[in-house]
Design a binder for these strands. Structure first.
Lengths: 155, 155
DNA sequence: TATTGTTATACTCTATAACTATA
DNA sequence: TATAGTTATAGAGTATAACAATA
């Protein structure tokens, strides 16, 4: 599409969107094979970093709405991958933590996802690949969290 | 989030999605200021590469459904940014091409978008930035087009 | 009264199906 | 009958509003 005009490049948003779609599409079969939804996987990963005191706090840290992770929490709990216990000190809140089974499931799935990623990234020479991932991580860490983007969009 | 564990990195899909959301959110105000929708902008950019003989063909090249660009084509035409003329040889088909005004509008908007991108990318050292963009472009060009991802997703 | 989790509702975006006009 | 474009309908994903329990 651009080889006849070597100095030209697509918009970053367009390229990032294409990469995001492709990598997400590559992940989905892995998640399905291990009975996890995309959000379920994100929740599991977040809880593996440490327990959380309320569902709302968990939702904030992963950039989700508190109402849309409820089904995933139900499912993860039923599968025995997370614990969800009423806080004795404040019985409105639910203490969330990952179980040993959840930790194992996450590692298995993450390994499968890494395999798929490698398949897509191997079009880059090994050195470029590492530099690319480091730069992408640096950017992602520096970007405004999802919560603040909605407001930007308005005007 | 990851500084205490330097060898760790997020999934590529997660990082790419965050980058895509942030850059898209940064683009939207620019587009709005110049009365273009996201798809309108993509259409305008595609037609600036050359005229197209049918709407369906245009939709395919930009990875959109033929039904969902109709409103954008209407709008672009009313704004005088594109021409949409029945093909004399086959009056079912609509010949699509960009006008001079459309070309100018695209250049203006693209410049504004580049400014916003710079703002986000300036967190990377200049050399890294260039290498990152080249790698991202190489990956985006090599990735399967959007059309084929849907099928992958199914299983 | 305020907050946590939940359920119900509405809205946006997209895909699918049905229609028209040409061929 | 087949195809290009269009319109109407339905579906998925998300956000907003309303609700029950607890503080």
């Amino acid at each position: 599409m651009s080889d006849w005009r070597p100095s030209w490049r697509d918009d970053v948003a367009a390229m990032a969107t294409r990469l995001a779609r492709a990598t997400t599409a590559a992940e989905l079969p892995v998640l399905r094979r291990h009975d996890l939804s995309m959000w379920g996987y994100v929740v599991l990963a977040a809880l593996t970093e440490g327990p959380v005191r309320t569902q709302a706090a968990l939702a904030r840290t992963i950039g989700a709405d508190k109402t849309r992770i409820i089904g995933d929490l139900d499912d993860l709990q039923h599968q025995g991958l997370i614990r969800r216990e009423p806080d004795p000190a404040d019985r409105r809140a639910h203490l969330l933590s990952v179980t040993e089974a959840g930790r194992r499931r996450l590692e298995t799935v993450r390994a499968g996802i890494r395999e798929q990623e490698e398949r897509l990234l191997e079009r880059l020479p090994a050195g470029d690949r590492e530099r690319f991932l480091r730069a992408l991580q640096a950017l992602a860490d520096a970007l405004p969290p999802d919560d603040e983007l909605g407001q930007q969009e308005i005007r």
